[in-house]
Computed example of a mutant assay.
Amino acid sequence: MGGVVVLAASLFSVLERGNISSAIVGLSVSYALQITEILAWFVRMVSEFETNIVSVERIGQYTANKTEAPLHSDVQLPVDWPSEGSIELRSYCTRYRDGLPLVLQNLHVKFKPGEKVGIVGRTGAGKSSLTLALFRLIEAAEGSIVIDGEDISRLGLHDLRSRLTILPQEPVLFSGSLRMNLDPLGAHNDDDLWASLDHAHLKTFIEGLPGQLEYEVGEGGQNLSVGQRQLICLARSLLRKMKILVLDEATAAVDLETDSLIQDTISSEFGDCTVLTIAHRLNTVMEYDKILVLSDGRILEYDRPQTLLADSNSAFYAMAKDAGLVSCE
Rank of each mutant, 00 (worst) to 15 (best):
V254W: 05
Q230H: 01
Q230D: 03
V226H: 06
N223K: 01
L238Q: 13
G227N: 07
E257V: 09
I262D: 01
Q228I: 14
A253M: 13
Q222R: 10
R229D: 02
V254D: 07
L261Y: 03
L245V: 10
V254Y: 06
I232N: 06
L224M: 15
R229N: 03
L247E: 06
G221D: 06
R240I: 11
L224V: 09
M242R: 14
Q228V: 14
V226S: 08
G220Q: 00
T258F: 06
E257I: 11
L261I: 05
L224F: 15
V246Y: 09
A235I: 04
I262W: 01
A253L: 05
Q222L: 11
R229C: 13
C233T: 09
L256R: 04
L231T: 02
A253C: 10
T258Q: 07
D259E: 15
D255R: 09
L231C: 04
L239P: 01
Q222A: 14
L256Y: 10
A252W: 13
R240Y: 03
A253W: 01
V226Q: 12
Q222P: 00
K243E: 06
C233R: 07
A235G: 08
L261S: 00
N223R: 08
Q230W: 04
N223D: 12
A253R: 02
L224S: 10
A253S: 15
D248M: 12
I232Y: 06
D255M: 09
A250V: 09
L256N: 11
L231G: 04
V226P: 03
G221C: 09
L256W: 04
S237M: 06
R236P: 06
N223L: 00
I262S: 00
L245W: 07
D259W: 03
C233F: 14
D255N: 10
D248I: 12
V246Q: 06
Q222F: 11
A250C: 12
L261N: 03
S237Q: 04
K243I: 12
L238G: 05
D248Y: 12
S225V: 00
A250K: 14
R240K: 15
N223C: 01
A250F: 12
Q228P: 01
D259F: 02
G220E: 00
A235N: 02
Q228W: 04
Q222N: 15
L261H: 05
D259R: 03
A235L: 07
A235M: 04
L231W: 05
R236D: 05
D259A: 11
Q222G: 03
Q228K: 04
L224D: 07
A253F: 03
D248S: 13
S260Y: 01
L256P: 05
L231I: 10
Q228F: 09
L239D: 00
V246C: 13
L261K: 05
C233V: 11
T251N: 11
T258C: 15
S225A: 00
S260N: 14
K241V: 09
